[in-house]
């Protein structure tokens, strides 16, 4: 019961503090910009008589590009909105009146986690849906395996959310933000090293990337999502932000699930045992 009370209040907080609405407003601005770009591109393609196959491939790339931007926004949204929820409430003492109630602490933490999950799910679904709706309206294409890609992008955010919760039970708000962004940055860099390693056929460089993904699987989930969503031709592009020359395996996806569960368990254990 406590879980759902806390989930409800966390979700309502995001809505009432206008976080969710501002994020959606910024997202809408992005979709308008994206749609305008696509509109003029479609006009130019028609004027130059570009072949339908090439036009379709470019449109696919545009979808992936839009989703890449959404992924970046979702990562920032996840970290920026959630870093203060536990550490901030512990530091300010807000948590004291809550934790003194007849609700086990694990329910308080899990409730907050579910609240953010709900908000991020709505945000990612709306943004990914929006990009696909715009490209479908302008160019008649959508991402290839949209449901799979959407699930993987969602999972990336939830992994980051769980990591935020772990750090927030140990550190202050700012430190939590710096550590989570730093860890995601490490994974991002590792992803690029892995791609370069694949192009230059340097197995050790590929391994460095894999190790980075083991430390933080968020970026690997995006690369798997990109692989699922873009066309086979786009997948063979040599080097780009969406390049999937070294595709994270399904084993990595399952590892990310395990990583998420362990992070959440560590956060619950630490929060249940720490002084407030």
């Amino acid at each position: 019961m406590g879980v759902w009370i806390m989930a409800g209040v966390t979700f309502r907080e995001a809505a009432r503090k206008k976080m969710l609405w501002m994020a959606l407003a910024a997202g809408s601005a992005f979709l308008i910009l994206f749609g305008t770009g696509l509109h003029f591109q479609a006009k130019d393609f028609a004027a130059h008589g570009m072949s339908p196959v090439l036009r379709r491939e470019i449109s696919f790339t545009m979808v992936t590009m839009g989703l890449y931007a959404v992924d970046l926004l979702a990562v920032l949204m996840t970290i920026l909105t959630s870093i203060d929820t536990l550490s901030g409430e512990i530091a300010s003492g807000t948590i004291q009146a809550i934790a003194a109630k007849p609700v086990p602490r694990w329910q308080v933490l899990l409730g907050k986690w579910f609240g953010f999950c709900g908000m991020l799910t709505a945000y990612i679904a709306i943004m990914v849906g929006g990009v696909n709706a715009v490209t479908y309206a302008m160019a008649g294409v959508t991402a290839r395996h949209l449901a799979r890609g959407l699930s993987l992008m969602w999972m990336e955010s939830i992994v980051l959310l769980s990591v935020v919760f772990v750090f927030a039970t140990y550190f202050s708000t700012l430190t939590t933000g710096v550590l989570t962004l730093g860890l995601h940055g490490l994974a991002f860099l590792g992803g690029w090293i892995e791609q370069f390693g694949a192009i230059t056929q340097t197995p050790r460089a590929v391994n460095v990337g894999i190790i980075a993904s083991v430390l933080m699987p968020s970026e690997a989930l995006w690369r798997r999502a990109a692989f699922e969503m873009q066309s086979p031709l786009a997948n063979s592009l040599r080097i780009s932000p969406f390049s999937t020359l070294s595709v994270p395996s399904m084993a990595m996806v399952f590892y990310a699930l395990l990583y998420l569960a362990i992070a959440l368990a560590v956060a619950i254990r630490r929060f249940s045992q720490r002084d407030l």
Binding site: V9, E13, R16, K17, E89, S92, G93, T94, Q96, A97, A100
Partner: peptide, 11 residues
């Protein structure tokens, strides 16, 4: 329980 510095969700 009324904590010394009662903080809450001010929204």
């Amino acid at each position: 329980f009324l904590p010394e510095h009662f903080r809450f969700y001010d929204w």
